[in-house]
Each structure stands twice: as structure tokens, then as C-alpha cells.
Amino acid sequence: MPRSHRRRPEAAGDDSFERLLAGWKRTEIRRGVEWSVQPVGAERAVKAYTCPGCGGTIDQGVAHVVAWRADGVLGDHADLAARRHWHTHCWRIG
């Protein structure tokens, strides 16, 4: 019997989207400090945050970036806990 060439539906709970999203994470150097930067799409922005760049509100449903120190000065857990949500524009000019 010939094989089907149709894609199988992904199993519930499959984290392939999470893995894809994690692939967008990048490292940047700003003012001599290494940062991990990860974009957050509008559909995943489920809370409002205060942007440290401009002090304005990043509303729910607005795409933005999350940044945290990647150099491990305070330890990985502390650096991740200190992550901040930025307007994409504010991060670029900051």
C-alpha cells in the first residue's frame, strides 16, 4: 500500500511552536554588556508591561521584545528573573 504524503496533525501539547520561537532568541552586545533578546509576538503578549526605555505601557496584544543579561554576572536564574519587556523601537534606539 502506498504511503500517504499528507502531513499528520501535531499531537496536543507539542512544543514545536515553542522551539521555533526559541530559535528567534539572539544575543546582542550593548554598552559592553551581553544581552539575550527574544521577540514576543502580538498573539503571545498576554499582559501589559512598562517599557524601561520610555516608561510607557506596552499594552496586551502588542508585539515587543524581552531582554535579559546573558553574561551570568548575577547567575542565570537571577539574570532571567530580571528580564524586562521593551517596545521594539525603544530597544533598538536604547
Rank of each mutant, 00 (worst) to 15 (best):
L74F: 12
A82R: 13
G72L: 01
T57V: 14
D71I: 03
T57W: 01
Y49R: 12
H77F: 05
A78M: 04
A78L: 09
R83W: 06
H77M: 02
G72K: 11
D59N: 14
V46I: 14
L80Q: 12
A78Y: 08
C51Q: 05
V73R: 14
G55K: 09
I58R: 10
A45H: 13
G56A: 06
I58D: 02
P52V: 12
G56K: 08
G72D: 02
G56E: 05
H87S: 05
D71G: 08
H85F: 13
V73E: 05
C90W: 13
Q60H: 01
V73I: 09
D71P: 09
H64D: 01
V62G: 00
I58N: 07
P52Y: 11
G53H: 02
D76N: 03
D76P: 04
L74W: 14
A48G: 13
C51K: 10
R83E: 02
G53L: 00
A48K: 14
C51L: 06
H64W: 02
C51D: 08
G55E: 03
A45Q: 15
A82G: 10
C51T: 10
T57E: 10
D79P: 03
A67F: 11
G72E: 01
R83D: 03
C54G: 07
W68M: 09
P52T: 13
R83A: 11
A48Y: 02
W68I: 06
G75N: 10
C51R: 10
T57N: 04
Y49G: 03
W86A: 11
G55Q: 06
R83N: 08
V46H: 12
K47C: 04
A70G: 15
A78Q: 08
H89G: 10
A81Q: 07
H77T: 07
Q60R: 15
T57Y: 04
V65P: 10
R83K: 15
T50K: 10
A45N: 13
Q60M: 03
A82M: 12
H64A: 04
H89R: 14
L74C: 08
A48F: 00
A48R: 14
G56V: 00
H89F: 07
G75K: 13
D59C: 08
G72Q: 05
H64S: 04
D59R: 15
T50H: 06
Y49C: 07
K47M: 11
V66R: 07
G55R: 11
L80C: 02
G72C: 05
G75V: 13
C54M: 05
A70N: 12
Y49H: 15
L80R: 15
D76V: 07
I58Q: 06
V46F: 08
V65C: 09
G55T: 09
A70I: 01
C54A: 10
W68T: 11
